[in-house]
Design a protein around this nucleic acid. Structure first.
Lengths: 156, 156
DNA sequence: CCCTGAGAGTTGGAAAATCAAACCCTCATC
DNA sequence: GATGAGGGTTTGATTTTCCAACTCTCAGGG
């Protein structure tokens, strides 16, 4: 999907070309919650069945989901996240956190995630090296490949 | 965009309905890098000009970007992230990290982000309460609103 | 044996979004 | 007066989405 001719080599664009189409990340949401059957997906996401079938094919061929047989006769399948799929979950958590705060004012949330530590999950993106929360002003972009130009703050 | 009739009240779906359309997150990428002028966006993203104009209108009305006059005569505008826009950046970082690792094998990356601590940014999503990195198995979903059903692991 | 129903899709045609290229408008400069 | 930059809008062809209906496989009941 995203930018077939993005003039920049970019992992964000590449990732979005796999999961940036309408419904794809909602499929991941459902599958990570364990709702991996076709009819569950249709009901819980509200997507047209044909589009959903297309997305599922694509996510499987991208290695983000796998199709698992859960009944031989009649043949019935279920979709589950692969390791790569599970590692995309942080994207969902940060999206959820943003939406909870900016779209719902942080109150009356429709769903809470509880961390094993016992409190509600509020995801914070930190720097692996120093462990500190990352903020916009603390970053500098370093283009390594041609195609990149950076102007303003966070320019290198 | 995403799921006009998502039967679940969900902040992820709501967030995606604002920034889930094709090119929207790439616009945010550019704007956060300081490349906020229309022609820069066209060139750096590779999107059709009319679509870009539509996205920009939408992102401004959603409060994610602002349009700033940077020249009176002739009138020239530039787009910049609002506070809400900046707070969406973590989504871009986690997407980049996933793409770097899963789509490029972690090597030969086209762009690096340097954290103020001096090392390259590798974003890690942590739990604000306990500070630990969050992993899939450590979460439990707690639906608070009707419309939610959770089956498998991470069910409540 | 026949009917119904669940589950997992596929098909066909109308409606909406995207795309590419050309165009427009306001100035500044030559 | 012509050229060019910047920031879009217009037009018409091409792709995607959308929706409803349909298919196929089997299980179970009467």
């Amino acid at each position: 999907m995203a930018a077939t001719k993005d003039p920049r080599p970019c992992s964000i664009a590449d990732a979005l070309s796999l999961v940036g189409e309408k419904y794809s990340l909602l499929v991941l949401r459902e599958v990570c919650l364990g709702n991996g059957r076709f009819d569950q997906l249709v009901r819980n996401i509200g997507a047209p069945r044909d589009i959903l079938a297309t997305r599922l094919r694509r996510l499987v061929e991208a290695g983000i989901l796998t199709k698992r047989l859960y009944s031989e006769r009649p043949q019935r399948f279920e979709y589950r996240p692969t390791q790569a799929g599970l590692e995309l979950e942080p994207v969902l958590w940060t999206l959820k956190e943003w939406g909870d705060r900016h779209l719902r004012g942080g109150i009356d949330l429709p769903m809470a995630l509880e961390h094993e530590c016992g409190s509600e999950l509020v995801p914070v993106v930190t720097c692996r090296a120093c462990g500190d929360p990352v903020r916009h002003g603390e970053l500098t972009a370093h283009p390594q490949a041609p195609g990149w130009t950076v102007s303003g703050p966070s320019a290198a």
